[in-house]
Amino acid sequence: MSDVVLAPVDSGPLSLSQKQEVAAASERSQKIRKAAAVAKFNGWTTGILATCSAPFALFSLAGFFITTGMSVVAYNEFRGRRRLLEFDEEAPAFLGWNQVGFLALIITYCLWMLAAGLSGEGPFQEQFAAQPELAEVLGSPEELDHFYRGAVIALYGSVIALSMVFQGLNAYYYFSRRRYTQAYLTATPGWVIDLQRLVPSGS
């Protein structure tokens, strides 16, 4: 009886050393892919906010300004995410400046609303002039205007302060990813980079 010769097990098109190269590159790319996940979250969050503000864009210039601006920011977040997953060296800076632009947009909008809310007569003067009896129930219009102006300052001042923290940290985070992208591109063979660009990411 003749011996049965078993066919060698096919280990795939990559050698062991090549598989190790791919595994090492995947490990190096983790921080880049995490940044892509952050960009995805920021893109969806900003896009939802832009959608919610869209009805106001139909009735006010300020609403149109903030809706359009947030739409651009959201688009850039998704665009930057795609560039990160392609290991574009300039993608982190692109996303960082996008957050700086978002911060400038928010500050401009808040200053606009502050100027509108604090300039001229308060919103209660005209109503009290038409209905003087309101003073007996609500107090003087000057007191209400003082409260209103304080609320406007507190609201938009808080938005500016929180945005400086949140968008500032986001921008810093993105800018800091540049060194990881550079390290990945320096240490990873070109054929591995091309391979990983083709692999769909769940980020």
Rank of each mutant, 00 (worst) to 15 (best):
A57R: 06
I106P: 00
E89K: 15
P123E: 11
G96E: 00
T51P: 03
L61S: 11
M70S: 04
A57W: 15
Q127I: 12
A91L: 04
L85S: 01
A129R: 15
A57H: 07
N76M: 12
D88L: 05
M70P: 01
I48Y: 07
Q131W: 08
Q99H: 12
F65L: 05
C52V: 14
S53N: 10
G122I: 10
E89Y: 04
A36Q: 02
Y109V: 10
V73E: 10
G96F: 02
S53C: 11
F59E: 05
G117Q: 07
C52W: 11
L61N: 11
L103I: 03
L85C: 01
P141E: 14
T45N: 07
F56K: 13
T68V: 14
L103C: 12
F87H: 01
F65I: 00
G139L: 04
F124K: 05
F56R: 06
A74M: 08
A104C: 14
C110W: 04
C52K: 15
M70A: 06
A54D: 09
I106H: 04
N42Q: 05
I106T: 13
L103Y: 07
E126V: 05
R81D: 01
V38N: 00
G43M: 01
F102M: 08
E136T: 14
C110T: 13
L85W: 02
S119F: 11
G69D: 08
A93G: 01
I48Q: 04
G101H: 03
W97A: 00
G47N: 07
L118I: 13
P123A: 10
M113G: 00
A39S: 11
A37L: 07
A104E: 08
G139N: 12
G117Y: 09
T67W: 08
P92Y: 07
N42T: 12
F124V: 05
S119C: 13
A115N: 09
G80A: 06
